[in-house]
Design a protein around this nucleic acid. Structure first.
Length: 240
DNA sequence: GCCAACGTTGGC
DNA sequence: GCCAACGTTGGC
């Protein structure tokens, strides 16, 4: 995640903050700017709506201290949580937050390991609770405390995610990048993948412009099946 | 540990 | 509203 880091916590616990990705910024003025820009971008614009959206969420699998708190949270850490579920707290970037708010129950996300020895897609998780206020924004000792956020109008949100499975084969960043590079020339499905075009975004939507560019390419790459991993299978084979 | 990219802050 | 300084992200 962004560097949003997270740490473990059970679904209703507090905890994780983790994921990284996020960038925190706590400014107030920008909040309104951002949310309006979000609303300007209908989900259908990136193709997520009709078929449901697919997501990519970054988390740091190796220890790193942020204001004295270890933000490590790997997919193995998620598996070790009660019900293999955690709340995705700590996102402090408006674009990422808006994606959290757009997530719907049972949609799946790729769990991406970032800022580590082996960056890449490690597994699949699913949304088991839609967006609700991120309690860590009100906790003064939390690294992601936001003094500008009010309880009666929380600025930041989180969702709960549950482990689904590991990828059959870990997909390294380098491999994704190689496809991205090739697709920029060929017009392939990864040509606009946010992992590369919006590198610092910790919560990303895998749109048809990112993984599967258009309906036509979706069909070509998925064989008409809407299984989340088909886009990846089309690219990497049955091993994922 | 380095450093490029990029988002945020704040002076003007 | 511009933009330079600064801080963070995150691969290498």
């Amino acid at each position: 995640m962004p560097r949003a880091r997270r740490r473990p916590a059970g679904q209703d616990m507090k905890g994780p903050e983790g994921k990284r990705s996020k960038t925190k910024n706590l400014g107030g003025a920008s909040a309104q700017v951002e949310s309006s820009s979000l609303q300007r971008t209908p989900a259908s614009e990136d193709g997520g709506e009709a078929l449901g959206s697919y997501w990519l969420m970054k988390s740091e699998p190796e220890s790193r201290l942020e204001k004295g708190v270890d933000v490590k949270f790997s997919i193995e850490d998620l598996q070790a949580q009660p019900r293999q579920t955690t709340c995705w707290d700590g996102v402090r970037n408006y674009q990422a937050r808006n994606f959290l708010r757009a997530m719907r129950l049972d949609e799946e996300a790729f769990f991406y390991h970032s800022n580590c020895r082996a960056p890449g897609i490690a597994g699949l998780v699913k949304i088991v609770k839609e967006a609700y206020p991120d309690h860590t924004q009100f906790e003064k000792n939390n690294p992601h405390y936001d003094s500008s956020s009010k309880e009666d109008n929380p600025k930041w949100s989180m969702v709960d995610v549950q482990f689904v499975r590991m990828m059959k084969r870990f997909i390294p960043l380098a491999e994704l990048r190689a496809h991205h590079q090739a697709h920029k020339a060929s017009g392939g499905p990864l040509k606009n993948m946010a992992l590369f075009t919006h590198q610092r975004l910790s919560v990303q939507r895998l749109t048809r412009g990112g993984f599967v560019t258009t309906d036509a390419t979706w069909e070509a790459h998925s064989g008409g099946d809407t299984d989340l991993i088909l886009p990846l299978r089309a690219l990497f084979g049955r091993g994922v």
